[in-house]
Amino acid sequence: MSKQLISVRINDELFEGEVEPRKTLADFIREDCTLTGTHLACEHGVCGACTILLDGEAVRSCLMFAVQADGASLTTLEGLAPEGGPMTPVQQGFMEHHGLQCGFCTPGFVISAHAFLRDHPDPTEEEIREGLSGNLCRCTGYQGIVRAVQRAAEITREDVTA
């Protein structure tokens, strides 16, 4: 199968590579770029574990081909907080409220929560539940996740007012 040259900026680093047109964006990120923080749990667009930010929008990287991301700028879980630097409010909220157990769905939840809070800085619990209903977790019963997002909104407000 003929390959296509693409260049994608991920977490502010430029990745160039030759990929088969059928290669999914998720596989490109994980295999070609060795950024394994993005997880695959269904590969048919339902569970949301593979969610990343593509030009700022939350997308499911298992439903896109890598060639469709040519020229785009992506953020994965690894790129949310600076290496060794402080966690983002969302990550902090997940830590404080036990928003993860096995951690496999976590990349998708954290990325989705980032996109959600950008659009809903002061969400109600109901809005959080609706906003994250496209991500599946099998460990937490979502208790800690909902609270984590509430806490993240709170931290963000504190940071703004501080």
Binding site: T36, H39, L77, L100, G103
Partner: peptide
Amino acid sequence: DPRLLSGHGQYIDD
């Protein structure tokens, strides 16, 4: 959590 929340877990496919 710090490892899993920053994308540095080591799952089998990694």
